[in-house]
Nucleic acid binder design. Sequence first.
DNA 1: ATATGTGAAAGTTTTCACAGCA
DNA 2: TGCTGTGAAAACTTTCACATAT
Lengths: 195, 195
Amino acid sequence: MGVYIQVLEGLLLQEQQVISSEKLAEQCEVNPSQIRKDLAYFGEFGVRGVGYYVSDLLKAIKYFLGIDRNWNCILVGVGNLGRALLRHQQLAQKGFQIQMAFDCDPFKIGERVAGHEVICTRRLKEKAQQMQIDIGLISTPPERAQRAANHMMQAGIKGIVNFAPTRINVSQDVIVDYVDFSNHLISMAFRLSHP
Amino acid sequence: MGVYIQVLEGLLLQEQQVISSEKLAEQCEVNPSQIRKDLAYFGEFGVRGVGYYVSDLLKAIKYFLGIDRNWNCILVGVGNLGRALLRHQQLAQKGFQIQMAFDCDPFKIGERVAGHEVICTRRLKEKAQQMQIDIGLISTPPERAQRAANHMMQAGIKGIVNFAPTRINVSQDVIVDYVDFSNHLISMAFRLSHP
DNA sequence: ATATGTGAAAGTTTTCACAGCA
DNA sequence: TGCTGTGAAAACTTTCACATAT
């Protein structure tokens, strides 16, 4: 689904105004019917005999996915991965604004990274509650991920994206998404082994 | 599938020798039948009335997934994300050894990161062919991802994991896997918007 | 003419339910 | 008794094929 956005934004840059499900399917590497089913799901956006208006379609998809607004994010763990996330252009572009960065390393506290002052993790609750934070990103080493999650839960954050390679326990009402690099490499190893 | 490994390795550390599909399902957050089906797929590894022997099961899964061996990897793009990958303990632990790191920035060439000398990307083919490289990791900015992929293809690499937020074109016989952070945040936004 | 939207068919995955074995 | 392995059922997803709209 995210692929659609990526491809459609590419088309917008090329100033292509209309696209057919067939052409779009080609670029997204999926079946044309798939696309028509998906797009029909949130309203009739295509024009028969013509195709889809790229700009309108993008707006509709963004609305449907809930990214027609900004999402306030915070990040815990200003290591290399944390810095990569703080500097990641596309996140901010898509409305995922990392408002604050936390770390428990005294050497990092006070440092500025990509326009953010690094704040002590113990002050997370206090700081995060001043602003309504929607999503927390964990980019700590695995052994500190649970603690980061606990801080986030205490601040009332309901969505956690965990980049640390470990599972975390959260209360029922919190949604966790895991981003695990190893899994991608495992999947690649499997595909290379079973041609 | 990678979840099984993560959880089983956790159990191994806790020196738990046997686990039932029910308990394993709980930790992996899936249905017990799911697990039994999956595990039965590559042989009868469970013992009725008892459960699965953790250590044997792990070996069987690793064999099945093709990670009972080492995979030689290279990385292109020694920015923050590249450094995070080079320092990522679990990748090496799982047999994904990043053998060389490349970058086109003259200021980075020659630098040592996590025990690797950063090499000029133009020398990739020459260097990578000396060692049989299985997998290439791209952690460049998006505008340089395609070039990195081209270098990898010229060196005969058949598996590419692309961390840059852009699609790349590769020849038929090359497998590409995309790791896109934005997609995870989009999925989170969607789940938070549709409770 | 051309390309969408969609019901029906085919395919795939998940879950159930219980026989079978330690 | 307790827990696996598995066929059958249910749920979900993908694809086809064509009526329908511009």
